[in-house]
Computed example of a mutant assay.
Amino acid sequence: MKMHKKSVYRFCLMVGAWLACTSMFAGTQGEGSVFIPADDAHIVYMGRISHRIPKAVTFTYPGVSIFVNFEGTSLRMKAKPGSGDFMVEIDDQLPYRISFTKDDSVLTLAEGLPEGVHRARIMYILEGFELKPVFEGFYVDEGCSLAEAPVLPERRIEFIGNSITCGYGVESNDRNDPFTYEMENHFYTYAAKTARALNAQHLVVARSGIGIYRNFGAPTSGSKDCLPAMYEQVMFTDPTELWDHSLYTPDVVCVNLGTNDTGDGKYDFGLLTDGYRKFVSHLRDIYPKAKIVLLSGSMLSGKPLDDVKRAMDTVVSERKQAGDSEVYRFDMSPQTGALGYGANWHPSMRQQQKMANELAAYLKELMNW
């Protein structure tokens, strides 16, 4: 008997609902489900990813995101045990955090959903250079599949930064807390919040402790592994695989560095300025048409903040004199403690929101968005 296409689809969902109730358990592969590998064309990614592992996706930078539309009533995710933490959004429901510990390879993202097509947005929220996360694919209900590939926003922002951009300590309310992965969450940073407010994609190149010419605690002469030196790599830990910039051309690049260069008061102003100068020149070579915004905020104060601003102002002035009028400056508010602190004196969640409000308003006007 030949069934109508819509009838087949409804039957698929009914079968999927029954299977979800009988065989979908977190952390087990289960029977009666369909595995779809990470290289499936219906899965869309945002951020720097590597395909070196067959049918899987690896990454190290926070903010890497996975977008998928799926049929059925449940969705499970497979990843390398110990990959770390993700924020998950299913349809229009509130986001929630999941963690792939050393004992987890499959986690249930949703079950018991209404019949129909659903969408999932999954963001990696940690710095993965130690954890080396690997996403392997999804399980959907038997008889179901992934739906049409999601279409991402046309607007594109690139954020280059340090621990502030990573989300270091943002889930803590105690400035005396040490760093732990449980307290890091890029989803709540000014970068991710700004992108959501402007309905834009965002790509992140950031690591805690890194600088424009000198990493935190390094000699004043500079660091060989400062951010500009790492910038071309797909994976922070792997210099053998270089990023193809044609895969993501931003409309605007936001650079928030300088805190680690100057925060301990030990730095060379000339080298600091030259670090900005050379990196902005490199970014302009890569992105001839993008606007570049040099940011300050929010952990610096006093002379270090003044010198970072002066170095960035110098470079912006030089670029304008050379005919490049698309390099800009913007200062987000320094933290005062009125909005609390995250771990180790880092921006609190409220401070990150304030930064996002300021930057989103600035970019909206700058970009005419």
Rank of each mutant, 00 (worst) to 15 (best):
T189W: 04
I157Q: 01
D331G: 14
A110W: 04
K224C: 04
H346N: 14
E232I: 03
T249Y: 07
T28S: 13
C166W: 02
Y181G: 03
R319L: 12
C166K: 03
G16F: 02
A200R: 00
N176I: 02
Y248N: 01
A322V: 11
N69W: 08
S50C: 05
I122S: 06
M355Y: 08
G32A: 12
F187S: 07
D91V: 05
N260T: 13
S317G: 07
R196W: 14
M123C: 08
A229M: 12
W345Q: 11
M312E: 15
H245L: 01
K354L: 10
K132A: 05
G167V: 02
L294V: 12
E142K: 07
G217V: 12
T28W: 10
T259I: 06
Y362N: 05
E326W: 11
D225V: 06
P133I: 15
V293K: 02
R196D: 14
F129I: 07
Y181C: 02
S348W: 03
G116T: 05
L152W: 00
L113T: 01
G116C: 06
I212Y: 04
L295Y: 01
A17V: 08
G340Q: 09
S223L: 00
K224W: 01
K193S: 13
N368Q: 11
R97Q: 07
L227Y: 02
S301C: 11
N199M: 14
G270K: 09
L300I: 05
T180I: 09
M235D: 02
K291Y: 09
I212R: 00
F59Y: 15
I53P: 00
G63Q: 10
L247R: 11
Y188N: 13
C166H: 06
Q353P: 04
L107Q: 06
Y61L: 03
H245K: 07
M77S: 08
V204C: 03
T28G: 07
E158C: 05
R119F: 10
H51Y: 08
G263S: 15
P228I: 05
V151K: 15
T73H: 04
L19D: 03
G84F: 01
T108G: 00
N176V: 01
Y168T: 02
G217D: 13
Q93L: 14
G161D: 04
R10L: 14
G30M: 15
G63Y: 10
R10A: 13
D261E: 05
K102I: 10
M299E: 12
R277V: 06
F67N: 02
I66K: 01
T249L: 15
A343H: 02
M235F: 05
C226E: 03
R207H: 08
S7T: 10
H4F: 09
M3Q: 09
G116D: 09
P150Y: 13
A38D: 01
L198S: 13
N199P: 04
A197D: 15
H118K: 07
F25T: 12
S208I: 09
R319W: 08
I164K: 07
F59P: 00
I90A: 13
Q353T: 08
E171A: 03
A120S: 11
F11Q: 15
N260H: 06
I90G: 08
T262V: 13
H346F: 11
